[in-house]
């Protein structure tokens, strides 16, 4: 600890990470460091490995080479480390993945009660606070199936927040939503960012990236092709593949 006093531990540090699916090389030699409080946006064409990369950070996928360190703990075969990291890293999924057999409130209090051993009353109070933060406290007693897509995704964000994570991962949080619902989810994400949460977002919402991101990463074919602050990234991209991608996605 003493030697790293000057340098605070980064939220996530990835060095030389490799990932294979059979013989397919999905992630090639990824190096990435995310500081605490930083907002990172990752974009790239489908199949470029961006989802795989952030799913490696909380071990939904197992990496095959290199090192991943999250909040100073290395992600390896140690079960205790994996559990510890998952407690501190929240994730929001493309398809929400709310538990359909539980009410919104139960969805929110389940993990804090089981994992953090927080008493129910306290967990419910916290859950209501976060539901208010995502602006749907009135839906607490409903079941996920009774909500719209945008509402469900906001509940999913609240559910992650209830674990009071240090880092939040977003895996294309708005891709499965109807256009009119994207804004309400993005608003919540923007307000989270202003609270100082460490966020790693895979998204194609370039407006959001411009407004919120500290850095934007472009991935293609399992590699980080370009990494820059949003101004440079959108204003003056260096790589040809980035330019092509941006022209396709912003072209219309």
């Amino acid at each position: 600890m003493t030697s790293t006093d000057q340098l605070p531990t980064p939220a996530v540090s990835i060095q030389g990470m490799q990932k294979f699916y059979g013989s397919f090389h999905a992630l090639k030699n990824i190096d990435l460091t995310v500081e605490k409080g930083e907002k990172l946006v990752i974009c790239g064409p489908s199949g470029s490995g961006k989802s795989t990369m952030i799913r490696c950070i909380n071990r939904l996928e197992e990496h095959d080479g290199g090192r991943i360190t999250v909040l100073g703990t290395e992600l390896n075969d140690d079960v205790g480390n994996i559990d510890g990291i998952r407690r501190e890293v929240g994730m929001v999924f493309q398809h929400f993945n709310l538990f359909p057999h539980m009410t919104v409130l139960e969805n929110c209090v389940l993990a804090p009660m089981l994992v953090r051993k927080i008493p129910r009353a306290q967990a419910e109070a916290a859950a209501m606070r976060y539901l208010e933060k995502v602006r749907i406290p009135e839906q607490a007693r409903k079941y996920p199936g009774q909500l719209s897509g945008g509402q469900q995704q906001r509940v999913a964000i609240a559910r992650s927040l209830c674990m009071e994570p240090e880092i939040l991962l977003f895996d294309e949080p708005t891709s499965a939503l109807d256009p009119e619902m994207i804004a309400e989810v993005l608003d919540v994400m923007v307000s989270l960012a202003s609270d100082g949460m460490t966020m790693i977002c895979v998204t194609h919402e370039m407006g959001f990236a411009r407004r919120v991101a500290d850095r934007v990463i472009f991935m293609d074919a399992g590699e980080i092709v370009e990494m820059a602050d949003p101004e440079t990234f959108f204003g003056d991209p260096k790589n040809e593949r980035t330019k092509k991608f941006l022209s396709q996605i912003l072209g219309h």
Partner: peptide, 12 residues
């Protein structure tokens, strides 16, 4: 996704 969501919440 259900199991993944539970995993990402740190559930055993």
């Amino acid at each position: 996704g259900q199991e993944e969501a539970a995993m990402s919440l740190g559930m055993s």
